[in-house]
Amino acid sequence: MNETPGRDGRPGGPPSAGAGEIRADLRLVADLVAPGTRVLDVGCGDGALLQFLTNSKEIDGRGLEIRQERVNASVSRGLSVVQGNAETDLRNYPSQAFDYVILSQTLQAIHDPRGVLEELLRIGKHAIVSFTNFGYWRFRLHLAYSGRMPVTDSKDHEWFDTPNIHLCTIRDFVTLCDALDITVERCFSVRRGGQTRRVRPSSALANLIGEQAVVLLGRE
C-alpha cells in the first residue's frame, strides 16, 4: 500500500539496475547534474546514485541517509555519507555550499516537505527532486474503482503503517513551489516503462501519464 519506488532496491522499488546501469529516474536525475560540481544527496540510500555520479561526472559528492545499514554500505564503498535525519540535520549545512542538492524518492516520507524544500534551496544553488506522481491515471482509476488507496507496488505497507505520509501529484508539487517562490526550471515525467520526457510543469497531461516526476528547482 502506498509504497513508492524506493532507492536501490528498497522494498517496493523497481529492481536495482545491474553494474554500470542505473534506474531510469536516477539516470534522469544524474543527467541534470553538471560534471565536476558539488552535490549533496539527501536520503542517498546505499549510495548508488552518488557512486554513479562520482564515476561518470567526477562530482564532489556527499550523502545524508537516515538508515544506518545503508550509511554503512555507502561508506564501505568509499562514499562520503553521514548518518542523519534530513528534517533536523540539513540546518547544519552552510548556505549555497553545493551546486545541487538531490532529494530522490524521499519527499513522501518527510514530515515537513515545505521546510525541507526551503532548506534544499538554501544549501544548494539548485535542487533536484524526484517523487511518485499520485495524479498518474492508474492511481486515479484505482481510487475511483476500488475505493481504496492506490497501491503503487505492493507488499509491506498498508495505509496506516506506511512511512510515506506526504503523497502528492505533479500539480500539487508545482503549486507548493509557486507558493514558496521556487522556480521549476525543468520538469520531467517518467512513465511506467521507463520512458522519460520533458514536460511543462503545468501540463495536465503530464500529471496524468507520468508515474514519476523529476524536477530541477532553483531560485531567481
Partner: peptide, 19 residues
C-alpha cells in the same frame, strides 16, 4: 555527531557511521 554537525557546517568531506 556534534563533530559531524560542525564538519557539515564547514561543508567538509565527512563520513559518519555508528556501529
Amino acid at each position: 555527531r556534534e563533530l559531524v554537525h560542525a564538519l557539515n557546517a564547514a561543508a567538509a568531506n565527512v563520513s559518519f557511521v555508528e556501529i
